[in-house]
Amino acid sequence: MAAAAAAGAGPEMVRGQVFDVGPRYTNLSYIGEGAYGMVCSAYDNVNKVRVAIKKISPFEHQTYCQRTLREIKILLRFRHENIIGINDIIRAPTIEQMKDVYIVQDLMETDLYKLLKTQHLSNDHICYFLYQILRGLKYIHSANVLHRDLKPSNLLLNTTCDLKICDFGLARVADPDHDHTGFLTEYVATRWYRAPEIMLNSKGYTKSIDIWSVGCILAEMLSNRPIFPGKHYLDQLNHILGILGSPSQEDLNCIINLKARNYLLSLPHKNKVPWNRLFPNADSKALDLLDKMLTFNPHKRIEVEQALAHPYLEQYYDPSDEPIAEAPFKFDMELDDLPKEKLKELIFEETARFQPGYRS
């Protein structure tokens, strides 16, 4: 834990890192770190609560700039109880001085990944967590956004079992017609939660990839272990087919990539493993919904509104309290091709509203 900075004593240090967030945020305490930044909790002297502050230093890398800009653009436009918001952003007053960006968010005690390492969940908890994931996802999908990296560590939890989806750095506007060349190379989302079509096709992607990830998360809540822990690309596919069985001819016809289709045709026939054999203690309604989410063919996979209306979630289902976005989200430009200098300018502009004396 960093010592509390005395008023006016300059930035606090946390594990050798400068955290320049005073005077409003003090009493910093280390939480963890990701690929390009550290997260601390801090005391907000204005709202009198502890908050989470993520320090991001992305400006050396085009990919990190892209992810940072995506996350900020999306989260500043989203407003939903099951999606983490941005409360404040701290950065230098000029673009030349801006080396880091500090993002202030609600402090959540833990995440689903940490929880599943230590606790076996009751059916009631599984049901409530799944409902909140789908409630947040309904809003995301209504904005025409794909999260693309749903996994237990991106689901934040607090002691009252509130759940918030975080990390929109890989999110995209849904565009089933656009052929994202190089899709697989830039697709760094965790393999275990990846839909089979991501490994088999490169053309376009749809909201059904997020539903697949939610199915993987439900299976993990039922058993405290990942359902498809593939060691590499082909191993991942083999794990999936080992449980779902061989795809039907109709399902194979959806695979545009001939090499991928021929690979699947070359494999020995596998039978589907019954879900109640894998999860003998699970609620039968939970397994019915799991089956509809972990469907090989993305066109037959359940959609988020149908999933919310499934009998497993009937005690929570309330369409009048499951809000959607006001308007579909649009990125003005494809960020993939922009140089990091341009992305830095866009991050600077996007964060201006939090600067003292800002006038829109």
Score class of each variant (00 low, 15 high):
M108C: 12
H269M: 09
L264T: 09
P23V: 12
K285V: 12
R261L: 00
L244E: 05
L265Q: 01
K54S: 05
N144T: 02
D167F: 06
L308Q: 04
L200K: 02
L137D: 02
P247H: 00
D175K: 07
T295Y: 11
Y36C: 04
D288E: 00
D167Q: 06
Y316T: 14
L234G: 05
A286R: 06
A309M: 15
R15M: 00
K164R: 04
N281K: 05
G22R: 02
L155M: 01
K270E: 06
W192A: 02
P311A: 14
L218K: 03
G16N: 13
G245T: 08
L335Q: 01
H232N: 05
D167I: 07
N276V: 13
L289Y: 02
P93I: 15
S320Q: 12
Y64S: 08
A2F: 14
T94R: 06
W212I: 01
Y43C: 06
T351W: 14
N158Q: 08
E345D: 00
Y263W: 12
H232L: 00
P226G: 04
R301I: 00
V173D: 06
L115E: 09
K231W: 14
D337K: 13
T206W: 06
I53E: 03
G10F: 08
N253F: 12
R135C: 02
K99M: 01
F59K: 12
S284F: 07
P196W: 02
T181M: 08
S360C: 09
Y358W: 06
D167S: 06
H125M: 02
K151Q: 01
N281G: 14
P23R: 14
L278M: 05
H120E: 09
S29W: 12
D337I: 07
E197Y: 02
K340V: 13
V49I: 13
W212H: 01
N276H: 12
H269V: 10
L112A: 11
E341S: 12
H125N: 00
P247W: 03
S248A: 03
V49Y: 13
E322Y: 15
L130C: 09
N47L: 07
G215Y: 02
V304H: 09
P229H: 00
L244T: 14
D235K: 04
K344Q: 14
K54R: 03
V145S: 12
C161G: 14
Q355H: 04
Y128K: 09
K259H: 09
E314H: 15
G8D: 15
L287W: 07
C216N: 04
H147P: 04
P93T: 00
F129Y: 01
V273W: 14
E60L: 09
A309K: 14
S202R: 01
E109F: 11
I90R: 15
P11W: 05
L28F: 04
V101H: 04
L222Y: 07
F19D: 04
E60M: 10
C40M: 14
I90Y: 15
P247F: 11
E197T: 04
W212F: 05
V46H: 14
R194A: 04
V46R: 12
K292G: 08
A189R: 02
Q306L: 01
Y312C: 07
K117R: 04
D177G: 11
Y205N: 00
A9Q: 06
A171S: 01
H239Q: 00
G230R: 09
Y139M: 07
A171D: 03
C161E: 02
E334T: 14
F78K: 09
H147V: 04
W275M: 02
A352H: 15
E334Y: 10
K138I: 00
Q315M: 15
R277F: 12
D332L: 09
Q97N: 13
R225T: 14
F329H: 15
Y102G: 12
T160D: 12
A309P: 09
I31E: 15
L156E: 02
I302W: 11
